[in-house]
Nucleic acid binder design. Sequence first.
DNA 1: TACCTTCGGTCAAAATCGCGTCACAAAAAA
DNA 2: TTTTTTGTGACGCGATTTTGACCGAAGGTA
Lengths: 226, 226
Amino acid sequence: MKPRILVVDDEPEAVELVEFNLKQAGYAVTTAVDGAEALKKARAQTPDLIVLDVMLPEMDGFEICKTLRLDAVTAKVPIIMLTAKAAEIDRVLGLELGADDYLTKPFSPRELLLRVKKILARFQSEEKPKEQLRFGDLLIDLPRHIVTWKNKPIEMTATEFKLITVLAQRAGRVQSRDQLLRDVWEYDSLIDTRTVDTHMRRLREKIGAASKHLDTVRGVGYRFVE
Amino acid sequence: MKPRILVVDDEPEAVELVEFNLKQAGYAVTTAVDGAEALKKARAQTPDLIVLDVMLPEMDGFEICKTLRLDAVTAKVPIIMLTAKAAEIDRVLGLELGADDYLTKPFSPRELLLRVKKILARFQSEEKPKEQLRFGDLLIDLPRHIVTWKNKPIEMTATEFKLITVLAQRAGRVQSRDQLLRDVWEYDSLIDTRTVDTHMRRLREKIGAASKHLDTVRGVGYRFVE
DNA sequence: TACCTTCGGTCAAAATCGCGTCACAAAAAA
DNA sequence: TTTTTTGTGACGCGATTTTGACCGAAGGTA
């Protein structure tokens, strides 16, 4: 899947230029023209990289950067700052803001692409999404599509696997039936929410003792514990 | 939880129209017909947004707006002004009053909804709702749907959890039984207000020593302290 | 093609648990 | 004191979840 990049700038021409070049290079680009939009989209999409202009109306790039760092969802998304003044560089890259790189305007598309590639390479090698989820004797192997209990494989259908995966990935957090329908069944809200119960039952039957991980929270939904 | 909107207008028809449309769109709506009521409800409920008519008897919208901004509780609640004259717009949106948007009467419901959505999106993305509420040894974890006292979990039903959450989120401010019925039970005011008492009792039993946080304010309602 | 198996969704009982109400006791206010 | 308001215990209905059974769709096999 293409790496997703969020470009934040209030000048339409600048946005267009950057967007064009990044798309050309094979990235999925979304844009924002102000701080509010940027924060919203960053939260919603958790892009792989954010290109952020410092000069923005209302909320400037520094503030956006700080705010992004405070939110767990976006705290680790690398940021490339676009700044007009070379004097600001120290502040941008320092501890106070913690951007990952910078570019001074005006810059060439080639420069930008180089930085983007460099940053993405660094981050992608470091933290990839977990391929295995382990809870005591229970192991969920995502790429292999296998669940084991005490090293014994548990036969499971596709829906059941997705259900336990979604629950385990949000371990501890209660998921409503509607949420599960959205995330497991993928926008088929024309399905009866009671269906979730049935699948939970089948899941519990199959995983046997491991079903202690699956909590019912009456009136709310289900939760994977521990 | 639905975003809460306070609609302030002295004309019953106008209120009804706005209320109907906002409710239709999935918002929780309360109304006020004059300045005094508006300020009172705004303080008590801290809605997510206030729709405020400028033309009001006694205290007009400008004054209400200023007063709301002076009170720390309501200072940051976004306000959409309903104004008759285009000439007033600058004053409304300027520093003097600090409303967040305006609509000139007459306006279409669709227009209003658009503004409401826009404003709410902006503010919600800026300040994320807290996921945990901590008061000394008492911890309320919203996504996990768990309450702990000195790190020991306290078993709790869905309603009890919602009750303590609503109270804790408005810590320090007294909540009337009617308010609690609205916010915890969500518009089932066909329920006896004394039911709140029963749930408070069960809550106090369950949380044991932590019930020192739950004050009874005789003749008014309940309050979460500290 | 016909037959069989499996999976996913629906439905309806059964079991469970929470909720709302009432009546009365207790406490505070008048 | 009387009156008003809140706390408490108990009860039964009803909502929610669990469980078992059913059925159609999809896919594999002969």
